[in-house]
Amino acid sequence: MREAVIVEAVRTPIGKRNGALAGVHPVELSALVLRELVARTRIDPADVDDVQWGCVTQLGDQSSNIGRFAVLAAGWPETVPAVTVNRACGSSQQALDHAAFAVMSGRQELVVAGGVECMSRVPLGAARQMGEPYGTTARVRFGGSDFSQMSGAELIAERWGLSRRQLDEYAALSHERAAAAIDSGAFARQIVPVPTDAGRFEVDQGLRRGTTAETLASLKPVSREGGVIHAGNSSQISDGAAALLVTTPERARALGLTPLVRYHSGAVIGADPVLALTGPIPATEKVLDRAGLSIENIGAFEVNEAFAPVPLAWLADTGADPARVNPLGGAIAVGHPLGASGAILMTRLVHHMRDEGIRYGLQTMCEGGGTANATIVELVGN
């Protein structure tokens, strides 16, 4: 089987709800990162075999196969196809898997993977206003569950014995790490500035500097009386987009491009849909086994911070080094634009690996309905 490599990875800064990106249509935001891929790599977009584009809430401004219209808005030839992928929060991570698998199989040679979500325009839960997304049979099978991720986060905190204080301390650490990453310029190379009516937007917007466990202690639980989950230890509602270019090492060489990382291994699993957010634990185990690696071999992890209990439970079960997990902060600090988050995390991960000389990186995402993706990439040259 052929190898697949990521030769470029770009993202927009993440806008907070009703913030800097609220006035930018998601098709235009998607087109921006597609055009940036071409500008940086100087590929002919006519040579792109396919575009795999993640998006979760495919309603309104994000409907009608948004990936296809992003390609057209980018000015690419109409011969370039695109498909929109929905695996809940892991949509654009799954898009990367699809791209890598197509290249590795020999069916395609140059594929774009990425995604978008503009939650300011199409809010989380919008589908519920139009009908019943789960049906009766699945609810009955799982005891009448409403498959709420927030309820799942509460259950995880309870099952793993995670206190409100522990969750808030983790949330504060996410902000501290994100602030340090922004201040050091760690994101500068990967970010595509977005022109807006208010000016040039180029820094992740959700960061709240000076956040501490003490300041978070005043926030009220949002799920239930006496609960431990609140807005401050949950991911932020956000807007953003990201894109990665995947090809073979041979094609990269022919194009004069230097790969960032090679796609090493990928896995996807299904887990308890009521807990909903524990999937990254078995997904990590599965992808490590498939790769023939141990947790100690991985130099950097991106474990999506949907809620603080997710990475903390993952840490407890995997035994990973906490210093290697979300070293640049995460979605609690800067936001979680659903369909874009997988590609955003991978963009952060591969640039961090290049900056720090880290051989192996692992990314994993919890996803609505209890599924999870896990992906391992390897620094080229190691």
Rank of each mutant, 00 (worst) to 15 (best):
A186F: 13
F201Y: 03
G227H: 12
G227Y: 09
E158I: 11
P193Y: 06
L244Q: 02
L207C: 01
E214M: 11
P221I: 13
Q236S: 05
L216I: 07
V222T: 00
V203C: 10
E169H: 07
E154R: 07
L167R: 09
S238G: 12
E154L: 10
V194W: 10
E169V: 10
F187D: 02
R165T: 09
A231V: 00
S151P: 12
E169T: 05
S184P: 07
W160N: 02
D239T: 05
S218I: 09
G240L: 05
A188M: 06
V222R: 00
S184Y: 12
E154G: 04
S223I: 07
L173S: 08
L162P: 01
W160I: 09
G240N: 09
R224N: 11
I229T: 06
I191R: 05
G206I: 01
A241Q: 08
I156T: 14
H230F: 08
R177Y: 00
E169M: 07
D183K: 10
E169D: 09
Q166V: 08
R165L: 13
P195K: 14
Q236G: 00
Q166K: 07
Q149A: 13
V203N: 02
I191F: 04
G152C: 14
A231S: 09
G232K: 02
V192P: 04
G226N: 08
L244D: 06
R209Q: 00
A243E: 03
